[in-house]
Computed example of a mutant assay.
Amino acid sequence: MITLRLGAADLTRIRFGSRPHPVGTVILASQALRDPALAARMPDLAARAQAASASTAALRHLLPAQGMLPDFLTPHQGIESVAAGIESIRATPRRRITAELTKTYAELPPSLWRRRFVAADPQMLDLLMAAVDRYFDAVLAPAWSQLTAAHRGHVEHRARTYVRSGVDGLLNELHPAIRWRPPILEIDSWWSAELTGSGEGIILVPGPLAGLRPRVLVRPGQPVLVVYPVPTPPETPPTRTDPLAQLLGGTRAEVLRRLAEPGHHTTTMVGRHVGISISSASEHAAALRAAGLVDSERVGGAKVHRLTPLGIHLLAGDVRPPAC
């Protein structure tokens, strides 16, 4: 069990991750979906992971099937896109890579790849990052808007808990494996330690692909990161109709969902991903902007689009504007 001693500076700066971390989710999912029980609850994701297994084999070989993962593979930075997350991982000092992998591989049989990775061989990091990129595209990208919406819905629910019950209620209701005994947060994780908060606050990260147990990352000068499992969202709508498509139209709904995914969403890229012309993508973006669901700004010669808070609420299943 992990005991995490939290001070006032941490408790007054509790916040949730703004959205799922693309690379962090890949790392967790590549481990979690190897568990038959979780794979059975998310059969579409599990099927795509199996189909992509040949091109993402480095993830299975270089990461343990369950338990502790090296902290540098779940970075604080790089939440905006897969490329940004990979860049953050690549910036990890060699000494830290070696130290964390030595702990991770302590109970695993040695292999040439693992020995090279422990030695911070750049080719092994390249191999793993290529597998991360392919895994996101093949396994997670088709469900990313759904995962993002589920994240938002969970955060909104916990925000109401905080309003109703304060810090005590929030921390005690996160997960059965997390217990708040002021000033100690007890966490049944994959490892045991006595830790002290950094004084930089706490970032809570709910994840349907987080695995079976919560995880904790404490580093000096950074907020404490607490990643904890939440129920998996349904992979298919409960009815055959798509309420968002009924409200906005099929293509416009797809444009909105595309904008919930990580990345730099120019008009050209939206059109390419949705399969429509640039002019049509521009018209749909303008209509969504007029409805208050999208913000747009010109960056260089391109117009970049992103969801507004109302657009995020709509994708999370709440069509009402947030209360002021």
Results as ranks from 00 to 15, higher is better:
residue 4 L to P: 02
residue 5 R to T: 15
residue 8 A to H: 03
residue 12 T to Y: 00
residue 14 I to W: 01
residue 19 R to Y: 04
residue 30 S to G: 13
residue 32 A to N: 11
residue 37 A to L: 04
residue 38 L to C: 01
residue 41 R to S: 14
residue 46 A to H: 03
residue 47 A to F: 01
residue 48 R to S: 11
residue 49 A to R: 15
residue 50 Q to I: 00
residue 51 A to M: 08
residue 51 A to Q: 15
residue 53 S to A: 15
residue 54 A to L: 13
residue 61 H to W: 04
residue 63 L to I: 05
residue 70 P to W: 01
residue 70 P to M: 06
residue 71 D to K: 06
residue 72 F to V: 05
residue 78 G to Q: 09
residue 83 A to M: 02
residue 84 A to P: 05
residue 86 I to G: 08
residue 86 I to T: 12
residue 87 E to K: 10
residue 91 A to L: 08
residue 93 P to N: 09
residue 100 E to P: 11
residue 102 T to F: 05
residue 103 K to N: 06
residue 104 T to Y: 02
residue 108 L to P: 00
residue 110 P to N: 06
residue 112 L to F: 05
residue 112 L to C: 02
residue 112 L to E: 12
residue 123 Q to P: 02
residue 124 M to T: 14
residue 127 L to C: 10
residue 127 L to K: 13
residue 131 A to P: 09
residue 132 V to W: 05
residue 136 F to P: 11
residue 145 S to G: 07
residue 147 L to Q: 08
residue 148 T to S: 13
residue 152 R to F: 06
residue 154 H to G: 02
residue 155 V to C: 04
residue 158 R to I: 06
residue 164 R to L: 11
residue 165 S to I: 00
residue 168 D to G: 10
residue 173 E to I: 01
residue 182 P to I: 10
residue 184 I to T: 14
residue 186 E to V: 14
residue 186 E to G: 08
residue 189 S to F: 06
residue 190 W to N: 13
residue 191 W to A: 12
residue 192 S to T: 12
residue 193 A to E: 15
residue 197 G to L: 07
residue 198 S to N: 08
residue 201 G to L: 01
residue 203 I to R: 02
residue 204 L to I: 00
residue 206 P to G: 05
residue 212 L to R: 15
residue 213 R to L: 15
residue 215 R to M: 14
residue 218 V to A: 05
residue 220 P to S: 00
residue 220 P to D: 05
residue 231 P to V: 00
residue 235 E to I: 07
residue 238 P to E: 09
residue 242 D to L: 10
residue 242 D to K: 09
residue 242 D to E: 09
residue 249 G to R: 09
residue 250 G to E: 15
residue 252 R to Q: 15
residue 255 V to E: 06
residue 256 L to V: 04
residue 257 R to Y: 03
residue 258 R to L: 13
residue 259 L to Q: 07
residue 259 L to T: 08
residue 261 E to N: 10
residue 262 P to L: 12
residue 264 H to S: 12
residue 264 H to C: 11
residue 266 T to R: 15
residue 267 T to S: 12
residue 280 S to A: 14
residue 280 S to W: 08
residue 286 A to N: 13
residue 287 A to W: 03
residue 291 A to Y: 01
residue 291 A to H: 06
residue 301 G to Y: 12
residue 307 L to A: 12
residue 308 T to E: 06
residue 309 P to S: 03
residue 312 I to E: 14
residue 315 L to T: 03
residue 316 A to I: 00
residue 321 P to T: 09
